[in-house]
Design a protein around this nucleic acid. Sequence first.
DNA 1: ACATTAAGTGATT
DNA 2: AATCACTTAATGT
Length: 213
Amino acid sequence: MTYELQEAEAILKPLFEERLLREMLQYGELKRFSEGDLIMDYGKYVRSMPLILKGTIKVFRQEQDKEILLYYLSDQETCSMAYSCCMEARKSEVKAIADEDVFLVTIPHQKLDEWLCTYPSWKNYIMRSFNVRFIELLKSLEQIAFHRLDERLENYLREKSTRSGSALVHLSHQQIADELGSSRVVISRLLKHLENEGRLLIYRNEIKLLPSF
DNA sequence: ACATTAAGTGATT
DNA sequence: AATCACTTAATGT
C-alpha cells in the first residue's frame, strides 16, 4: 500500500464505516494540487465529487463581469455544488482554486448515489455537508442584507485573524476587496478609518489588529 | 536608477 | 459605496 493511500485512510477512517472506506479507496482517485492551481472551471463537466483530505479550496461564481467568492472548502469537507452538478451531469457553474496545497479524493458519480442507499455514514456525511453549507449561506445572506460594508470588513478581518491565530493578517487591500465583492479604493478608505480610530495598523500587504479590535 | 505594484486621496456620480 | 484620475510609498531588478 502506498504512502498516499495510508494517509488518505487515516484521515477518512473516523468519518466512515469500514466497508465504505474500502470502496472509497478502491474507486476514488487521490489527487494533489499546489497553491493557486485551478481545480475546476466554469463550463467543465463535473463527473466526480471531491472530498478534501487536507488543505483549502476557494470556490467562486461568475455573474456577468463580476466574480465572487462563494465559500471555502477545507479538511473533511465536500462541495455541495459538485454533488448536484454531477448527479445531473451538468456543467460547472463555479470555479475552484487551491488556496493552499490540497490533497483530495474524488468520488465517481455512479458511487455517490449508490452509497446513499447502502451506507448510513455516507448519507449522514452528505446531509451534514449540505446543512453546513446552508447555514453558512444564510449567514452571508444576513451579512449582506443587514450589515454595511464596514461591519462586514471587521467581521472578515476578525475571522481571518482567529483562523490563523495571529493578529497579523497578510492580505492586500485588493485581495480583501475581491473577497468582499467591493473595490480596492473603498477597502483602503475603510481600513484607513479603522487605523485612525487606533484599532489596527496598516503595512504593505499586511494588517495588524490591535487589542481594541 | 527605473519599473512595478500597493496604498492614499479628492472629486464626481 | 463605486469609479476615475492621479499621487505617493514600498519593493523588486
